[in-house]
Amino acid sequence: MDDDVERAARKVRAVEQAVSEHVTRSGPITGRAWSPDGAVTVVATPGGPPQQIAVSPAALRMGPHGLAAEIVRVAEKAQRAASSRLHQTLERVVDPRELTAMGFPRHADEDEFGWRP
């Protein structure tokens, strides 16, 4: 069992290094999405919590329920954009099927999410 774990750890470290070198070249991988009226903007990381949630002063008029629902909606879009960008960035060093299985599929409609390279 220890050998298996050590082997798995070695493999993880090797992939981690390849990914790390790749990401160093490409820059941080995030996804960004926003409401059509700019009320809420979210910067998300793939597989992690939102990095930044920004609310415009005008958005406060939506009320607590409306604003909360909009934050959830935009955060989901931002994370999908982040996942898609991660997939695109790493598909050269990691099997794309593995990336999809890990929960980072490539979304065909990412442009709708306002992703900016």
Binding site: P50, I53, A59, P64, L67, A68, V72, Q79
Partner: peptide, 25 residues
């Protein structure tokens, strides 16, 4: 990190837009 639900207390909105974003983050 997927947000399944967010609940904001009405008083939070009184703290301003910047505070709302920071507290939710």
């Amino acid at each position: 990190g997927e947000l399944r639900a967010v609940h904001l207390h009405p008083a939070l909105l009184g703290h301003g837009a910047h505070a709302v974003g920071q507290v939710v983050t």
